[in-house]
């Protein structure tokens, strides 16, 4: 099943449900790519990333990417594509003073914003708005006013998330230069995406640091400054979050889930799960 809807302002919502699919190389629009069920492999510039259920990635308009779905379970994916002019106008109306907006209502000659591209968990208002948008699209709603209102709110939610997850975290880094902070956070984001993307594999610290183009010590220190946890704690939290997803959405036995999410033994998984969520996996299910 494939649905494609082009909205006013050249924004698009694309929904897909497939076991196997190859999306061609895409560029030219800002994109929120998300997976509701299963996983998809993305090639983004020179990075290979896996996007798992319950996550989304935001991509810049000049980024080239392709997606491959090859799964034993049906993968439900949704892409929201924003026309660069829409994002430029949105940013202008968000940042310009009211007087300026009255004098110059159009964002003429503005430069398209560039974001640090990263994978985020689909949660909070972003999740609720995207699920409501998905529901409307599935019901065949073609009301452009409504669909564009969802898109505006998705951008609003993304900007709030970006402020919290990127700008505030960059500010927390203990460097004097703003440029250095931004560059370190960009590299940490690459490492973070690598961990999320390979959460169920046996990945080592040296490998993650190499991906981020940082020494192991530098990587460890700056990761903790930015995210207030070690890379290992972050990896464990991702595994536990994915375990919660499988507990809630599948009937896989706990032992199998332990294996799928990359834990080595069920007893340590149960202990970690109980310590983190104050409930056992069985009770959570």
């Amino acid at each position: 099943m494939r649905f494609q809807k082009t909205l006013v302002d050249k924004n698009e919502v694309i929904m897909e449900s497939a076991y196997e699919a190859n999306s061609p190389l895409t560029t030219g629009k800002y994109a929120i790519q998300m997976i509701f069920n299963g996983a998809a492999a993305y090639t983004i510039a020179n990075r290979e990333l896996n996007l798992y259920s319950g996550n989304f990635i935001f991509l810049n308009q000049d980024t080239s990417y392709s997606r491959k779905i090859d799964s034993s379970v049906k993968v439900d994916a949704m892409s929201v594509l924003f026309d660069p002019d829409f994002v430029i106008d949105f940013e202008y109306s968000r940042t310009a003073k009211d007087e300026l907006l009255l004098d110059e209502p159009k964002a003429e000659q503005r430069i398209a914003p560039v974001f640090v591209e990263a994978i985020y968990p689909l949660q909070g208002d972003m999740k609720f708005n995207l699920l409501n948008l998905k529901k409307q699209v599935e019901e065949g709603n073609t009301d452009n006013l409504l669909l564009n209102t969802y898109l505006e709110h998705c951008l609003l939610n993304y900007y709030a998330l970006y402020d919290a997850e990127v700008l505030n975290r960059a500010a927390a880094l203990k460097f004097l230069s703003h440029t250095t902070k931004s560059e370190i956070l960009r590299r940490l984001s690459i490492a973070r995406d690598y961990i999320i993307s390979n959460y169920n594999k046996n990945i080592c610290l040296e490998e993650i640091a190499r991906i981020a183009c940082l020494s192991v010590n530098h990587f460890l220190r700056t990761f903790k400054q930015a995210y207030h946890q070690s890379p290992h704690q972050f990896l464990t939290s991702i595994r536990l979050r994915q375990a919660k997803y499988f507990l809630r959405n599948t009937d896989y036995p706990v032992n199998e889930i332990v294996d799928i999410v990359g834990f080595e033994c069920p007893s340590s998984f149960i202990r970690l799960f109980r310590n983190s969520f104050h409930i056992t996996p069985g009770q959570y299910r």
């Binding site: 208002d125 708005n129 409501n132 409307q136 009301d143 006013l145 409504l146 209102t149 969802y150 709110h153």
Partner: peptide, 23 residues
């Protein structure tokens, strides 16, 4: 169950809203 949907519906019917959707 969907504030944005109802907000757009009310606006389309010409009902004056005195607040945009707020989080």
């Amino acid at each position: 169950d969907d504030c944005l949907r109802d907000f757009c519906k009310l606006k389309r019917k010409g009902i004056e809203m005195f607040s945009v959707p707020i989080y």
